[in-house]
């Protein structure tokens, strides 16, 4: 399989204050049509790594390569063009869709930037692609449900036919049934359009449904990366083991408070151990 995106030994730090390393020496690669999930607790660096891959935050060390080309070592115009091959979808569609623009205009914008001659026809195609009625083009974001808005965000990201879709907690604001429909949609779109997905999530249940492979981050480092079932069902890293134990299955019955607190202590211990 051909590697589409590669992050090599990437470090990201936020120097405001104390020079804290958010991402330390992280390497991942994603192939065409593949979904790689990036999981870990809040603050572990998964969103920082995703933002670095999208060029939103600068990297301190390492490289990001798209089809083998180092994105920080290209002429400026080529970098911009290459960056457009990587598109992002965020958790909260309300924050990423301009509330004053109609859906049609929101979808037309990236098309116009890319020099599309007939944006109106493409807007209808994009709405159809995410299984929305083309009549929604005339609506404002607030007239849509949460699930519909997230579909619009996906359609906008796919407007330029990217090679990589980076989705940062795209299901976190959705109901279970809406999230399940969104997962089915993403899988279908990926089959049809062959893009690669970097799926950032704290929801292991959604990860199981969507990801071919999982990379687990803990305190800025990737501590485990392998096929989804292997990582979730037979984890080897101590943090991943804790994470797998913490998942609440609906049929598993009541929470054992002592077990939960034992897990809490082990988790705290991992955080104080030197890495």
């Amino acid at each position: 399989m051909s590697v589409v995106l590669e992050a090599n030994a990437v470090s990201v730090s936020y120097t405001r204050g104390r020079g804290v390393h958010a991402v330390r020496d992280c390497s991942i690669l994603i192939c065409a049509r593949e979904t790689l999930a990036l999981v870990g607790e809040s603050g572990c660096g998964k969103s920082s790594l995703a933002r670095a891959i999208c060029g939103i935050v600068p990297i301190d060390a390492g490289s990001i390569r798209l089809h083998g080309r180092d994105l920080d070592n290209l002429p400026r115009a080529a970098t911009r063009a290459a960056r457009r091959r990587i598109q992002m979808v965020f958790q909260d569609p309300d924050a990423s869709l301009n509330p004053r623009h109609r859906i049609g205009a929101i979808l037309a914008e990236p098309l116009e930037v890319a020099g599309e001659r007939n944006p109106a026809r493409r807007v209808a195609e994009l709405l159809d692609l995410v299984q929305l009625d083309s009549a929604l083009a005339a609506r404002l974001p607030r007239e849509l449900s949460g699930g519909q808005k997230q579909r619009v965000a996906i359609a906008r990201a796919l407007a330029v036919e990217p090679d990589v879709l980076v989705a940062d907690e795209p299901l976190a604001s959705l109901d279970v049934a809406t999230a399940a429909a969104m997962i089915a949609l993403l899988r279908e779109l990926q089959q049809r359009l062959s893009f690669a997905v970097l799926f950032i999530s704290h929801d292991l249940a959604a990860v199981r449904q969507l990801a071919d492979r999982v990379a687990v981050m803990f305190r800025g480092r990737i501590v485990e990366c392998d096929a989804t079932a292997r990582v979730l069902d037979a984890p080897t890293n101590s943090y991943t083991k804790l994470l797998a134990r913490a998942v609440l299955h609906p049929l598993a019955g009541k929470l054992d408070l002592n077990a939960a607190e034992a897990l809490d202590r082990e988790h705290a211990l991992l955080h104080t151990t030197d890495t």
Partner: peptide
């Protein structure tokens, strides 16, 4: 919240 923190908060 993520799974480990969720468990702590529920407990």
């Amino acid at each position: 919240l993520d799974a480990t923190v969720q468990l702590q908060i529920l407990a």
